[in-house]
Simulated assay, not measured.
Amino acid sequence: MASVAAGTVIVLRSRFPLLDSPGGLLMKRLLLTSMILFAAQAAFAAQPEQSPAGWPQLPPKAPASTVKLLEPHLHVNRAGKGAPRIALTFDACMGKTDPRILSTLVDQRIPATIFVTARWLRTNPDALAVLLAHPDLFELENHGQNHIPAVDVPTDVYGIPAAGSPQAVGQEVKGGADAMIAAGIPQPHWFRGATAKYSPSAIAQIRGMGYRIAGYSVNGDSGSLLSAKMVERQYASAKDGDVIISHINQPTHAAGEGVAASILALKAKGVQFVRLQDIPEKGDGGTTN
């Protein structure tokens, strides 16, 4: 590296004679030091990334575009004649609880299936007490321990690091169920992972643990990121047998206002609301049968 830098200085001397003047000595030293450092950085960057001896070698993350992921659909049996049948499902990922949605469900006596994480349970004891006080309305199911996508290869899903291995997927599912039981919730039978995307092998693993996987057919709020009016349009598109997914943990988002208004609008149309535990259902991708 030093020889490369020195050679560069010789070339520069031929172009800039001032480097050989007494005043150019400092300039020459600075230039030589800079060139050595530059060459060292280039050589280091060319080396393959290594961990120090004895450190575990982490597998590289696969680009999300190269990982086969499924986003399963789910429908409940259609009512056919008469009032359409719709299942409302809500994810309680983490953070707080949206009182606009919860109070609407309770006041209007609207049944729903709520998917809770261990993280949400730790910080929402009051909301949990409301849910447990109305077992005729609310079915509580498993949304995981730490809200980690149930994908068993290292990758990101919507910017969220996935579980990355079968062991981590199993812990996400089991940890969520353990937290629910410790909080006084009955053993869950459904699982919905963070982002609602799965690797096919993770689906088989979760099914092997005794769970059905809750997909959906209408995305009500796109992760609670839609405006109230856009949420209302999504809900209005629901048909007989649809399963709607929304979020109940974002009280500061405009989407919650739209969810509450949409529930009232569907009720006014005579919709029959059901929980997943009440009506036979079918999901694709081997998620329920």
Rank of each mutant, 00 (worst) to 15 (best):
residue 107 D to G: 07
residue 248 I to C: 02
residue 175 G to F: 04
residue 115 F to E: 01
residue 276 L to K: 01
residue 189 H to D: 05
residue 6 A to C: 11
residue 130 V to L: 01
residue 14 S to C: 09
residue 43 A to Y: 06
residue 240 D to R: 11
residue 87 A to E: 07
residue 63 P to F: 08
residue 280 P to E: 04
residue 42 A to Y: 03
residue 162 A to M: 07
residue 199 S to W: 14
residue 39 A to C: 14
residue 126 D to P: 00
residue 205 Q to N: 10
residue 256 G to D: 03
residue 146 N to L: 12
residue 6 A to H: 07
residue 269 K to W: 12
residue 224 S to F: 08
residue 127 A to S: 10
residue 152 D to G: 04
residue 78 R to G: 08
residue 168 A to H: 07
residue 188 P to T: 05
residue 263 I to C: 09
residue 265 A to G: 03
residue 245 I to N: 04
residue 245 I to Q: 06
residue 195 T to L: 11
residue 65 S to W: 09
residue 121 L to Y: 00
residue 108 Q to D: 15
residue 253 H to R: 15
residue 57 Q to K: 15
residue 79 A to W: 11
residue 158 Y to T: 08
residue 91 D to N: 13
residue 53 A to P: 01
residue 101 I to V: 15
residue 210 G to Q: 13
residue 67 V to T: 08
residue 40 A to V: 02
residue 207 R to S: 14
residue 283 G to R: 11
residue 34 S to L: 13
residue 139 E to P: 12
residue 118 A to R: 03
residue 12 L to H: 08
residue 234 Q to M: 08
residue 162 A to P: 02
residue 200 P to E: 03
residue 134 H to D: 03
residue 171 Q to G: 09
residue 51 S to E: 05
residue 214 A to Q: 04
residue 33 T to V: 09
residue 33 T to M: 13
residue 167 Q to R: 12
residue 236 A to R: 11
residue 227 S to E: 09
residue 239 K to D: 07
residue 18 L to V: 13
residue 10 I to R: 13
residue 81 K to N: 14
residue 137 L to V: 05
residue 84 P to F: 04
residue 237 S to V: 07
residue 282 K to M: 11
residue 216 Y to Q: 05
residue 89 T to D: 10
residue 14 S to N: 13
residue 107 D to S: 13
residue 284 D to R: 10
residue 40 A to G: 06
residue 254 A to D: 10
residue 114 I to G: 01
residue 52 P to V: 12
residue 18 L to F: 15
residue 152 D to T: 04
residue 150 A to E: 07
residue 176 G to E: 06
residue 38 F to A: 14
residue 68 K to D: 11
residue 200 P to N: 04
residue 277 Q to R: 08
residue 91 D to F: 02
residue 238 A to L: 06
residue 206 I to F: 01
residue 233 R to G: 06
residue 205 Q to T: 11
residue 109 R to F: 10
residue 162 A to H: 08
residue 248 I to F: 00
residue 250 Q to V: 03
residue 186 P to R: 02
residue 272 Q to N: 15
residue 114 I to V: 15
residue 43 A to G: 08
residue 182 A to L: 13
residue 17 P to T: 08
residue 63 P to G: 04
residue 224 S to R: 12
residue 284 D to N: 15
residue 139 E to H: 06
residue 131 L to V: 03
residue 255 A to M: 07
residue 96 K to Q: 15
residue 154 P to F: 02
residue 166 P to C: 00
residue 22 P to F: 05
residue 202 A to R: 09
residue 289 N to P: 14
